[in-house]
Design a protein around this nucleic acid. Structure first.
Length: 644
RNA sequence: GCCGAUGUAGCUCAGCUGGUAGAGCAACUGAUUCGUAAUCAGUAGGUCACCGGUUCAAGUCCGGUCAUCGGCUCCA
């Protein structure tokens, strides 16, 4: 056989017999250290199994365990191992669907009459462990599509057959792991022994291909790592995330409550949560005013006719609550604020000189959400949007979008979010407005993103029917993304409501309308912040900035005086003067995540000072209440972007 | 809405195969006045989510409803 030349990307090269497997070639060309870490290989850029025979000259690149790709291969292989285990335990009563690697783990969808129970997890895990122990190789083979369809059809694997029918290539690859043969693109680990650390996490229902018209399958979720330590760390992270759960912290920190008898998805803000929210709102309003916005207030319901004109009854009806009748006229709760802002616009005539008009409102809207979708503050039925509508001339569009982006990122940063993913969504299949307007608006959005130096991803066809949009998904402390901000150009409503302005030429023109929300929903945003900060809000947002703790009753009077003084100086201070030990009070204040504890004993009383203990346990030297207040204001000013 | 799990005092949770509710913390009362993450003792607190059924007897079994949790779907 002829020799072929094989080169490692950025490394050694050599001549080998044709037909040598990639794994064998690597053994010659890379260090033992790399080899031990290698789970698959890229041949001329295409990821394949180590067992792949090499036929021509090529460049190899090992895929190692420490990469995302390596992890995906491990997890995808883990899904196969799980499927084999399920097969072995539950036999032919189970049909398999799909089993991909996902972020942080993998899943496999099964169709089985009986539900899986958490008790089954143990059995499945044990069987998986036995499979790992047995070091079963993953064996790849290729088949013609027709042959494969017949193969799976014989086994009654209807889902695989359905998948195959949609595949357009001539041949497909199958992977055998023991007696379980699965349709799969690969690549896989060489054998099951690599799966050293895995755990099944939960079972959940999911529709075949995510479509609710299809049968409901049972999805088993699991995760896998190359070693046990990483798995332990991951499980620990999950535990930490549970501790940050805003529903748990919301209760513990007395921020909000949701009650059955009031209704699901409806939030009651408790005093501390309400104060937090007020701080957010005040900052938001001030910042908007500073940036040339005017504040509006509009009602919660409007005549049904308004929603007809706006098109909401055509396009949004399923999210709206049914009509109520008032004096024989139908009214509906608002799912959006825009028609009202247009109402304000139409309250008088406008000249081109007035533009841009920037109106904002913290508008509470109501949208129907299916019960299964509700989730704490993150997904609710009544929520407050930090909404704004900008009306401008075409020549102002670029600047306005840029300014929105600028304000948007500035405010998010102040709240502690400076990591985000930006998406630009373009024209969907169903749309209104002329093509050149879409192009004009999409280009304007692009230019603003580029001018701002933001990297973005294109989301083709994901725009709203009335115009293109920019979405910003912020990343929290745990790296999870949350869709909050959205900037949407709208050609539809100005048309529907026949909005006009008088141009320089004395003629009537149609203004461009931009919708924009920055936090999206205040409820959700607070939820995200609770989890982002794990309940320990930065000083400027802490509902309780400081708590006075006395040592004995002898300081009661002095504490009251300090309390009054600090309140007067604008500090959000509370006092805990109960007859309890200092340790007890500190513990409680600590659990409430209060930034400063002000400790007052005889010493402080004598000297007219307080001892300041920070949330992190650090002590500051004793200072006067006056100095403390100045310090707090100084810190807050800094957090909010300089002296205000 | 769909699949699965869950629903016992304010919170966290016991309560085995049906015999008529229990702990810790919190609350309240009293004692203690104690300097950097829980002082001690006592008291009170529950139509066991709701509705119906089986049974001599149901927190415990069955059915329905509501809600919550994990997902699917949707999205701020």
């Amino acid at each position: 056989m002829a020799d072929i030349s094989i080169r490692i990307q950025d490394g050694e090269s050599g001549a080998f017999k044709q037909g040598i497997t990639a794994g064998e070639a690597l053994r010659e060309l890379v260090s033992a250290k790399v080899r031990k870490q290698t789970v698959a290989v890229r041949v001329n850029g295409v990821a394949v199994d180590l067992s792949t025979p090499l036929k021509t000259d090529c460049v190899l690149e090992p895929v190692t365990a420490d990469t995302e790709e390596g992890m995906d291969i491990l997890r995808h292989s883990a899904a196969h191992v799980m499927a084999l285990a399920v097969r072995r335990i539950f036999g032919d009563h189970v049909k398999v669907a799909i089993g991909p690697a996902i972020e942080d783990g993998f899943y496999y969808d099964f169709d089985r009459e009986e539900p899986f129970t958490p008790d089954d997890f143990d059995r499945i895990e044990q069987t998986m462990a036995a499979i790992v122990e047995a070091r079963i190789p993953f064996e790849r083979r290729e088949m013609r599509i027709g042959e494969a369809i017949e193969f799976f059809d014989r086994q009654g694997e209807t889902y695989k057959v359905e998948l195959l029918r949609d595949i357009e290539t001539d041949t497909v690859s199958l992977y055998g792991l023991g007696e379980f043969v699965d349709l799969c693109r690969g690549p896989h680990l060489p054998d099951s022994s690599w799966l050293k650390a895995f755990k099944l996490l939960r079972v959940a229902g999911s529709y075949w291909r995510g479509d609710e018209k299809n049968p409901m399958l049972q999805r088993l979720y699991g995760t896998a790592f190359f070693d046990k330590k990483e798995l332990r760390q991951h499980l620990h992270r999950l535990e930490e995330a549970r501790k940050r759960d805003h529903r748990k912290l919301g209760r513990e920190l007395a921020l909000f409550t949701i009650q059955d008898h009031i209704g699901p998805g409806l939030i009651l803000w408790q005093p501390r949560g309400a104060l937090l929210r007020r701080l957010i709102e005040d900052y938001w309003k001030d910042e908007h005013y500073r940036h040339g916005y005017e504040l509006l207030y509009t009602p919660h319901i409007a005549r049904q006719d308004l929603w007809k004109t706006s098109g909401h009854l055509d396009f949004y009806a399923e999210n709206m609550y049914s009509a109520m009748e008032i004096d024989e006229v139908k009214y509906q709760l608002k799912p959006m604020n825009c028609p009202f802002h247009i109402g304000v616009y139409k309250s008088h005539r406008h000249s081109y000189r007035e533009f841009p008009i920037r109106w904002c409102e913290l508008g509470t809207v109501y949208r129907y959400e299916r019960t299964g979708a509700l989730h704490g503050l993150m997904r609710v039925r009544g929520f407050t949007q930090d909404d704004a509508h900008i009306f401008c001339r075409p020549d102002q569009l670029d600047d306005e979008i840029y300014n929105i982006l600028d304000l948007n990122l500035h405010i998010l940063k102040t709240f502690g979010f400076d990591q985000y993913d930006v998406y630009l969504s373009t024209r969907p299949e169903k749309y209104v407005g002329s093509e050149d307007r879409w192009v004009m608006a999409t280009e304007a959005l692009k230019r603003a993103l580029e001018k701002k130096g933001l990297e973005y991803r294109l989301d083709p066809g994901e725009g709203v029917f009335y115009g293109p949009k920019i979405d910003i998904k912020i990343k929290d402390q745990l790296g999870r993304s949350w869709q909050c901000s959205t900037i949407q150009v709208d050609f539809n409503l100005p048309e529907r409501f026949e909005m006009t302005y008088t141009g320089e030429d004395g003629r009537e023109h149609q203004p461009i309308m931009i919708h924009r929300a920055l936090m999206g929903s205040l409820e959700r945003f607070v939820g995200v912040m609770i989890e982002h900060y794990a309940g320990a809000f930065p000083l400027w947002l802490a509902p309780e900035q400081a708590r006075i703790l006395n040592i004995t009753d002898d300081q009661l009077h002095y504490c009251e005086a300090v309390y009054a003084k600090l309140r007067k100086l604008g500090i959000r201070v509370e006092k805990d003067l109960r007859n309890e030990k200092l340790n007890y009070k500190i513990r409680e204040a600590q659990l409430m995540k209060i930034p400063y504890m002000l400790i007052v004993g005889e010493r402080e009383k004598e000297e007219g000072t307080i001892t300041v203990r920070k949330r992190n346990g650090e002590n500051l030297p004793a200072m006067t209440p006056q100095d403390f207040a100045e310090r707090v204001h100084g810190e807050c000013d800094e957090m909010m972007g300089g002296k205000r």
